[in-house]
Nucleic acid binder design. Structure first.
Lengths: 112, 112
DNA sequence: TTCATATTTCCATTATTCCAGAATTATAAA
DNA sequence: TTTATAATTCTGGAATAATGGAAATATGAA
């Protein structure tokens, strides 16, 4: 991941509403949820949510798919993985300084 | 790590100059570097650097220590570790959706 | 068609952040 | 003391981001 992409992702996640939206989408899993469902949960006006989603989209942290009138939004897990890898390199690589990172420490989770 | 702390850290790192500063401090290792050295490398005016450092300080991503006239700044590795853990939980925990995270994948690094 | 719904874009307003010069504080050296 | 250096705070203007109402677009249903 390039610096510019990391900055875009960090910026996208650094806003309360957007972080909430992203977390909610992660919770929703691979099926994601519609913009309307997200709006109901976050309780923000439509235009405001769209603006925030656009930031997350530009950072490639979410992707969407139109299903008729509804737009289904999903979290881009790979992108988050890349961001975490980028930060990890910032933490470990150059300095040889590496605090133990509890990544996927929980047992019995898929992919861990 | 609480949401507010994660937001502060994400926000602090979401600016090009601040991310550069933090990365440079990580590279400098546990001894860190003086504000002046950092200023020379980043080539920003003193007041500007101080303002950015204050954001990183507020997020507890760096800490400093006065040595005479010089202030020595060091990266707070634990804080970054906590941030990575927070993001990892956002990525894995609730959804049971976990992409393989290449944390400390490089061999022969201390602590990995 | 016409109507209804989902979502977006447009736009203006407000709020926040960024920037960097000037003044200030802190410390050390002469 | 006085002088010099390191870094900070203060400050105000410029740039950017956030907000949300209103209008526009996209799609499906009647």
């Amino acid at each position: 991941m390039k610096v510019g992409n990391a900055l875009a992702a960090l910026n996208a996640l650094s806003h309360e509403t957007r972080l909430s939206a992203y977390r909610r989408l992660v919770k929703a899993g691979p099926d994601g949820m519609s913009v309307g469902e997200l709006r109901d949960e976050l309780e923000v006006p439509p235009a405001t949510l769209t603006a925030h989603l656009n930031v997350l989209r530009a950072a490639d942290l979410v992707q969407d798919q139109r299903e008729g009138r509804v737009i289904r939004v999903t979290a881009n897990f790979d992108r988050m993985t890349s961001l975490i890898a980028y930060l990890t390199e910032n933490c470990c690589a150059d300095a040889g300084q590496c605090a133990p990172v509890p990544v996927c420490a929980q047992p019995a989770r898929r992919g861990c």
